[in-house]
Amino acid sequence: MNNLTIYLAIGVILFVLGLIAVMTSKNLVKILMGVELILNAAGLNFVAFTRFTTTNLDGQIAALFIIVVAASEAAVALAIILNFYRQRRAIDVNLADSLRG
């Protein structure tokens, strides 16, 4: 039960759920939540591979860098969302069409 496959399965489920959130949601904050789910799935896979297939800790360090990147990504994304809300009074992604030709 407690082996590599079950962790990879949890990672697959988290990844697919995050992808569905990114694809279906019109809400910028919910899209950000989907991205966080995907990053968590990647981190879980890295740590599971570190535990079961290698003897060093490279995967855990990769997961650590994923957390760092996720933190900076969330900060910048929230700043963009706040700016967008200030201009459009809503955060529906369909309103972000200023660059449409």
Partner: peptide
């Protein structure tokens, strides 16, 4: 990266 993201987020928001 964290420093740049911090300054960028403050500047954007």
């Amino acid at each position: 990266l964290l420093l740049v993201a911090l300054i960028g987020a403050v500047w954007l928001a």
